[in-house]
């Protein structure tokens, strides 16, 4: 079908050659934010390793997946790309908040409105009973359009600090206008999701696995108080 949907085929071909280890850990990450901020671009870029040709409005929820390796362990990163329009989140998207391991909030640096919506998205997560231990990160997208920026890095950093999230600024668009962006890693998209994956992996007795029956079971981290919640284990990346 479309470019934006070939990412799974790409990654499952990897998986099939890697399986069967006893259990592949799965990290389930939901990507949320206003309509048009570039959620589909970001998730596609990470999973397919290149920029999508053209993207369309996401209706409901799209799924993309990539198998990564951290310290010799294969891990499936599942990204749930959600519709931005408000009406979809109210009754449609809730199903996909279940058992989520991390949240990626996305805003568009050229849209002050998309930044102002962030508190509503944070509240949304709270309503879906996501605990404080679920890592969250903030991504300011489209920073290639620096001249049109409406949200300063300083402002975004303050917001991120106030909500104990690391901030990334990125562009999920090929920065040099080349046809094939697959070898360009200067956009940090890779780094963003890898950072989340590392964070999840480090949350030790956290068990994220795929039992034979198919339901993903999440056992919450047992008592682990000393880790600071803010800016966990990474500095902010800016391009």
């Amino acid at each position: 079908m479309t470019d934006a949907e070939s990412s799974l085929e790409f990654s499952t071909s990897l998986t099939s050659s890697l399986l069967p280890p006893p259990r592949t850990r799965i990290f389930k990450i939901i990507v949320i934010g206003d309509s048009g901020v570039g959620k589909t671009c970001l998730t596609y870029r990470f999973c397919a390793g290149k920029f999508p040709d053209k993207t369309e409005a996401t209706i409901g929820v799209d799924f993309r997946e990539k198998v990564i390796e951290i310290d010799g362990e294969k891990i499936k990163v599942q990204l749930w790309d959600t519709a931005g329009q408000e009406r979809f989140r109210k009754s449609m998207v809730q199903h996909y908040y279940r058992n989520v391991h991390a949240v990626v909030f996305v805003y568009d640096v050229t849209s002050a409105a998309s930044f102002r919506s962030l508190p509503a998205w944070i509240e949304e997560c709270r309503q879906h009973a996501l605990g404080q231990e679920v890592p969250r990160i903030l991504v300011g997208n489209k920073c290639d359009l620096r001249h049109a920026a409406q949200v300063s890095t300083e402002l975004a950093q303050q917001f991120a600090d106030a909500h104990s999230m690391p901030l990334f600024e990125t562009s999920a668009k090929n920065p040099h206008g080349a046809e094939d962006g697959s070898h360009n890693h200067s956009d940090h998209v890779e780094a963003i999701f890898m950072t989340v994956a590392h964070k999840l992996k480090s949350q030790k007795p956290l068990v994220l696995s795929q039992p034979a029956v198919g339901n993903t079971v999440t056992l919450r981290r047992q008592d682990e108080g000393e880790e600071p919640r803010a800016n966990w284990g990474c500095n902010c990346w800016r391009s």
């Binding site: 079908m1 949907e5 799965i26 929820v61 799209d62 799924f63 795929q210 339901n215």
Partner: peptide, 17 residues
């Protein structure tokens, strides 16, 4: 298909042309 929400969601949402 693997009896898993993500896998089945993905399979079904990709409509054969």
């Amino acid at each position: 298909c693997e009896c898993d929400m993500a896998m089945l969601h993905h399979l079904l949402s990709q409509i054969p042309q």
